[in-house]
Design a binder for these strands. Structure first.
Lengths: 158, 158
DNA sequence: TATTGTTATACTCTATAACTATA
DNA sequence: TATAGTTATAGAGTATAACAATA
């Protein structure tokens, strides 16, 4: 690499791999269940948090704006996979949870989903998979915890 | 996890990392240049192929349908960054290339883009970066070349 | 007949901002 | 005033299918 560009090349490769996996997964999710990846992700968050999450927490975890979480949730509610509950103590707040049917549906989708993922990743040596998992963990931590900012921070003022 | 789930966990982690990087990049790209990631990616493909690419090739590389490539290209043409040329020898075919202005604009964006990427990835140990780059290369090859299909193949017929 | 590319359509996701109701 | 959530709107991305021109 002539003038480094290491970080950029790493990012492009990361993006390429993600897209190579994500594109078929999205297609299969839609064809088999008529579901979109953002809605699947929302349900996955709720699966991991059985006590429910507020709209704000969902917004942060899914990294989309509040208005969009409302839209995603509306659709999931109308499908019957998700419910809104009044949160105790703060009447502004809403708690979103999976319904019993939503939990069943999610498990169904997750099982298929996992089979597809295994099929896609099956070509990679298991030892490499393990190592990759570990390295991505470090990357993730460094992204969530930008202790060292080499470039001008993007504190997102506004 | 009890029953392995290794591949799924690897995928979820990969996706999380990509999203943590992609979200701020998309915002910055829009705020600084009013550009979207798909259009940036299309320009990046053309930058790598100065002789131009056909709509079909773009469709494959960007992994979106032909109709969508037409739409992306239309917008880039109206902005003046990209041009359509008749392909010699096959009058159905169109060759898409960067204009001189488009090449300048892309270089400008790419420079900013790279600085953002370096800032985001700067928290990861350089040795880990190198190793991650290598492993992702293997993953990418295995995805492009599914020599061993452990699960029922998704040959994507039609 | 098959391929290349365009057009049309419908749906979804995204960002922004104004708004309500609480706090 | 600030926060939680909703609503409204506009702009894009996506998938599908029908279509024209060419091979």
């Amino acid at each position: 690499m002539t003038t480094d560009h290491g970080a950029l090349r790493l990012w492009l490769r990361l993006l390429a791999c993600t897209n190579l996996i994500e594109a078929p997964l999205r297609q299969q999710l839609r064809r088999s269940f008529g579901e979109s990846l953002p809605r699947f992700d929302l349900m996955a968050q709720l699966e991991r948090h059985p006590q429910g999450l507020s709209m704000r927490e969902l917004s942060e975890r899914l990294m989309v704006t509040g208005g969009n979480v409302t839209g995603l949730t509306d659709r999931l509610v109308s499908q019957g996979w998700v419910m809104r509950q009044a949160a105790p103590g703060d009447r502004r707040r809403v708690t979103v949870r999976l319904t019993a049917a939503g939990r069943r549906q999610f498990k169904l989708m997750a099982r298929e989903h996992e089979a597809w993922v295994q099929s896609l990743l099956g070509g990679l040596d298991p030892a490499d998979q393990t190592q990759l998992f570990e390295l991505l963990g470090r990357l993730k931590r460094s992204l969530r915890n930008p202790s060292i900012r080499t470039a001008p921070a993007d504190r997102a003022p506004r």
